[in-house]
Every structure is written in C-alpha cells, then in structure tokens.
C-alpha cells in the first residue's frame, strides 16, 4: 500500500486536485441553483412552486450516473462540446442542487412562520423579510446538512471515472490496470478519500450538536 502511494504520488495528487475542484465548483453551483429552487418551492406564486417541485423531484429520483453520462455523450452531439471534467461537474451540480434545495427549504420552513408575518406587518416586502429575517436564521440550521452535502460531493465526484475525468478514482483504475494490485490501490485511494471526507463530516456533526443546544436566534 505504501509503495502504491509513493510510486504513483504525482498521479494521485493530480487526481485529488481534480476531485476537489470538481466538488468545490459543484458545491458553489449547486448552492446557487439549490437556493433559487428552494425559494421557488416555498414561493407564494403557484407556477414557481410547480417548477421548483418538478425540478427537485426529477433530479432527486434519477441516478447521478445517468445525468453525468447525458452531459458527457449526448449534450456534445447536439448542443456544445464539453469535456469529461465539465460534464461531470455539471452533472454533480444539477444532481446536488436538488438535494440542497430540499435542505434549504426545510431550513427555511423550520424558522417560525410568525417571524415572516411580523416582518411583513412591519412594512417589509416578502423578499426583504426573506432576505433579512428568515434566511439568516435558516443558514445556521442548514450549514451542517450542507457540509454533509459537500462530503457527498467528494464521494460522488468519483462518477468522473466513467467520463475520463482524470479524478482520483480514474487514476486509481489506471494504477490498478498497470500494477494489478487491486486491494492495495483501493485501500490507498480509500485513505485519500477519507482524509478529505472524515474531518469534514466530524466537524459537521460537532456543529450540529453545538448549535442544536443553542437557541436559533443567537
């Protein structure tokens, strides 16, 4: 296992870099899209609610691999040429945004409904009340689940291995096919994944526990 790490260090680091950048880009993208669709889902306007719900339901119920492969082999033939990394990252973004929309929606709904009404009766518009009163409180509730979504993203980014995306899992497969040391390679690569995901998921569990003990408005 040590020899796998030392002999292929450059490839593994390159893979790690791709895995992390795909995950970070997808987190950013899916946060933006996710919040927009969460607002759609809870919006007072029915057409927006319908669009929001359809989006969330569709992408929560289709495998990531189907979405990512669609962007890798179908989109380039008819729309625009994108490579494996881009296609994979877009797939991850869209897939994760549906989950983030759900998380954010639940977070917003957990903020007392009375607060929205109070803000509205104090003359704020719906958007102002949302932006200044409800969302800031919701953020604290949703940070731990969002952190967990990032952990999921790092794990799910392994789908890039299907798309010649040069991520960590792709490199692992190439190492396996050249060295034939399956157990050692997957153990070593597993360790690298754990280095990324374990600290973060422990941090999120800690935050969850800590913030759960405090009142939401602190």
């Amino acid at each position: 296992m040590i020899t796998i790490l030392t002999d292929h260090w450059a490839d593994l680091v390159a893979g790690l870099r791709i895995t992390l950048s795909a995950s970070l880009l997808a987190l950013l993208g899916s946060l933006i899209i996710g919040v927009i669709f969460a607002l759609f889902v809870i919006s007072p306007l029915k057409p927006l609610r319908v669009i929001g719900n359809i989006y969330v339901e569709i992408f929560r119920n289709i495998p990531l691999l189907v979405v990512a492969l669609f962007f890798y082999i179908v989109i380039p033939q008819f729309v625009v040429q994108i490579d494996g990394f881009t296609a994979g990252t877009i797939g991850l973004t869209i897939y994760t945004s549906a989950f983030i929309a759900e998380t954010v929606r639940a977070g917003i709904e957990s903020v007392d409904i009375g607060q929205m009404e109070a803000a509205r009766s104090n003359g704020m518009t719906y958007l102002q009340a949302m932006g200044y009163i409800v969302l800031p409180q919701a953020i604290k509730i949703v940070i731990p689940p969002l952190g967990n979504q990032f952990v999921n993203l790092v794990k799910n980014s392994s789908v890039l291995a299907f798309l010649a995306g040069f991520d960590l899992m792709y490199q692992a497969n190439l190492i396996v096919s050249s060295t034939l040391k399956t157990t050692d390679t997957y153990l070593a690569v597993g360790l690298l994944y754990l280095l990324m995901t374990m600290p973060l998921s422990y941090l999120m569990r800690y935050l969850e526990k800590r913030w759960a003990k405090q009142p939401a408005n602190d």
Binding site: Y72, I73, I75, Q77, Q81, F162, A164, Y170
Partner: peptide, 18 residues
Amino acid sequence: ILQLPDAAQAFAALKSGQ
C-alpha cells in the same frame, strides 16, 4: 489520451467528439 471503461463507452465518447 482519454481512457474509457469499455469499448461501447469509448465509441460513444468518440461520436460525441470527446
């Protein structure tokens, strides 16, 4: 060099201009 998991995927990738 782009390495794909199997021949069917590789051919699909060629057709998509990858």
